[in-house]
Structure formats: structure tokens, C-alpha cells
Nucleic acid binder design. Sequence first.
DNA 1: TCTGGGGTCCTAGGACCC
DNA 2: TCTGGGGTCCTAGGACCC
Length: 346
Amino acid sequence: MSTRDWILHVDLDQFIAAVEILRHPELRGKPVVVGGSGDPAQPRTVAATATYEAREHGVHSGMPLRTALRRCPEAVFLPSDPPAYEAASERVMAVLRDFPVRVEVWGWDEAFVGAAIDDPEALAAALQQAVHDRTELSCSVGIGENKHQAKLASAFAKPAGIYRLTGANWAEVMNDRPTDALWGIGARISKRLAALGLHTVAQLAAADPAELAGHFGPTNGPWYRYLALGKGEAEVVTTPWIARGHSRETTFPHDLTDRDEIARHVAGLAGHVAQDAAAAGREVIRVSVKVRFAPFLTRTRQSKLPAPTTDAGVLSAAALSVLGRFDLDRPVRLLGVAVDYTLPDQ
DNA sequence: TCTGGGGTCCTAGGACCC
DNA sequence: TCTGGGGTCCTAGGACCC
């Protein structure tokens, strides 16, 4: 074997559920649903995750808790606890960083690992073992020549396995799959591709880039074909990510109709975002307000600020000004405030 | 299954300017 | 006069992901 660059995608299995089971060992083997404040009677709250035992009853992440309760009345419902998941994630990433590899954190429960080695399966197994020894968490590892291949491979490796997807087996493994099997093509684009006669990965790979550009834009169109060929980003970036922006939003259990109450909520969200921005040491250059009307119509309005700021009063005033451009003539189920940060090189 | 919250990036169209 | 063409900025929305 010869040494070459490999990308490994480390994906923790059932991350949130696994963390909760570690904290509540008595729940092992039981149907558990995690989400919201853990109250299945609360409307407009969905499951963040469900254990295999709950899935057997037809419960899955994204499902309203009330539906989950109906399907699995004996399930234990737990509140979502982001700080606990953040802490568990940190412990896992620290394990990965102890190896002589490059680590790019990709959310709570995922990381890309880059290494120049001759036996990626051996590295994958060593990573799994170390993660399990030090955190009691299980992970799957995908091996590829780029992030796209490695990411898809880790899904094939679940649970707790190792899978290699490269140019050598790409066509054999992927060609007959639907286009939304690719990382970056979802249901909508897949449907539009199908309308053009492009149903499978192989068909998309053979499509004319110029025609794709005509339908999906100069960047996206050719990019989809690129994905179908099994290509993708191959650089593991170890420097910390610099957030482009930040947001806070709330779905209300019951619709809001009172304008003053709506304004109070927007001001509160803006204050929260301002506090977050200050804590992150970032300046804000744009403020957006999101309103989701009942039943589910979402609209956004935004405004660029005259100058970057961290001032909570300025942000609240800007958010309220943007809110004033909405027709609040229908019941409101969600309000959100988002900001764009100035980037360091600007 | 009456549909969370937090992100990123791309596109299209209008305003404005030269 | 009745109308070009390019470039940039800004906004709204769409799509994807975890």
C-alpha cells in the first residue's frame, strides 16, 4: 500500500439519543423521544430525535411530539438540552484531535478528518475505538477521496461500521440511485431534475453542464453534475469557522394577533441577538425579520444598517422598523430576528 | 405527521450610476 | 430626445444541511 491523502467522515450514531441514554442509563432499551421542553402535549413542537425502540412505533425526528405520543404512548419524552450535546461533542472532537490528523468539525455530531496514510480503514477503526473508550459513544466512519464521498460513505457504514467510497466503486454504488442520494441535492431539486428526464445519478452525471446551467444557474447547474460524478471539496479546514450571521426565532404554541405583543416579541428577539453578537465579539451590518403567518406562510424583510453596530438599542429599533413594513393582517405563528455580521476582511 | 431552530449559499430583479 | 449597456448594491425568496 502507498501513502496518499484520505478524507474520513466521522458520524456519531444517534448522537442526541445516545447522550441522553448515557445520562439516564435506566432508559436504555426503551422508546425515548427528545424534543422541545419534553412536554408531548405542547403543540408545534417536534422531535429532535427518537431511539430505535421509538422508531419501531413509527416515530422519527421532525415528527410533532403530539403525533409521537399518539403513536407511542409508552415513550419517555425528554427535553432537548443543547449545552449537554455541545459538551459531549467537544469531548468527541478532542479525542479526534489527539490523533496526528486534521480535524474539521461539521456540527455537533460530525467531523471530517484528513490524513496522509496508507491504511484508512485502520485509522477509522482506531478513531472509533478511541471515541468509544473515552466517551462511550459509537460512531460510523466513511472513507473517501473528498468530503462528498466520505459523507455518503459514513451513511452506508451505519451503525458503527466503516465504508469506503471512492472513484473506484462510485459508479457501481451510486449510479442507479436517485439524484437526492447526493449530498447537496434535496427533494426539490431532485424533482426538477426528474422533470428534465434526469432520475438517477448516472443520468445526471451524463447531462450537459450548459443545459443544467440554463435551468439551475451558472453555479448550481454544473455543480449538480459534479456531485453526480462523485467529486467534491477535498480540503479539510482546521481553522475555526467564522459565522456569517446569527438568528433567534420562536414558534408560538398559539397564534399572535395583537400588534403590541408582536412588537414586544420582535424587540425581545432583537435584544437576544444583540446580546449573542456582543458575546461573540461581532458587529452587525444587516437586520432581518421573519414572520410566519398562520397557517404556514413565511415572509422576510431586511434592512442594511447605515453602519456596523453592536448596540442593542439600535438593533431593536432597526428590527421594529423592518417589522413595520409587514402587513400584520393575519395571525402570526412565528417571529424571528436574524443579523449578518461584518466579516473580518471587510 | 398541521409542519422546530439555527445555519449557509445562490438567484433574480429592481434601483441606481456612469 | 423615448432610449443602450455594464456594473454594483440591495432585497426577497428558495434550497439545502444538521
